[in-house]
Design a protein around this nucleic acid. Structure first.
Lengths: 119, 119
DNA sequence: CCGGATCCCAGACGATACTG
DNA sequence: CAGTATCGTCTGGGATCCGG
């Protein structure tokens, strides 16, 4: 019963999955793993994310206590985002998925192809 | 650079996150972890999932090669879903998130409260 | 350079009713 | 009991323009 079903019925668990279930959350977290970053810089590291969505994502992460936003006034404006210690604790689980993807990604792709062909 | 950025730029990695980023995917996978299950039964185990969404989710998992669907004809109809071996390899990563939620879920909740109060 | 405001689309999810 | 169809809602995400 420990890691059994209460496991998923548990609200906190759902909460954790919500964190990952936003497409860009894990991507942005990972992009910050090596240290603070500025929005423009992050956009460059991550490919294919619009500026608006990046901001949204960072704000969301901030509201969850995973990221801090520091603004230095002035012109041009300068902003830096950084993982909190809480945010850093999420790196290993994210990494676990990355490793899984590395090991089994092809199988999923093949399964999809097979499924499509049979349909 | 290994687990660095190519990590997330990689399409296969995105693919893995897509698997989890559907709200119900991990929940259903976890509900199947102890063996095959019938839809009605699964709905009972999982709380708050509609029948339609459960079917959708199972089909999606099937199309990704994570679950098999076996139909025994007759009346009343009998169907069983079961994790594939590929699907089972996803259990540890999912469990990693569950563990994280168990350990840090409260902190996220508190962070959210703090954020809301400040806003 | 940052990021807010707006318009727009796709799809995830729910409720219900209906077929086999 | 399993599954489909339909209708409706809501939100994530993309594109773009504008202001600080």
């Amino acid at each position: 019963m420990d890691t059994d079903l209460a496991f998923l019925a548990d609200c906190r668990t759902r909460l954790a999955f919500d964190l990952v279930s936003h497409t860009w959350n894990p991507v942005v977290i990972w992009a910050l793993k090596d240290g603070p970053g500025r929005p423009g810089e992050l956009r460059a590291r991550i490919g294919g994310i619009s500026q608006k969505v990046l901001t949204q994502t960072l704000r969301r992460l901030e509201s969850n206590g995973l990221v801090t936003r520091r603004a230095y006034g002035g012109s041009p404006p300068r902003v830096e985002y950084e993982l909190t210690s809480l945010g850093r604790t999420l790196l290993p689980p994210i990494q676990a998925f990355g490793a899984w993807a590395h090991d089994h990604g092809d199988e999923v792709t093949r399964a999809q192809d097979r499924y499509t062909r049979e349909a």
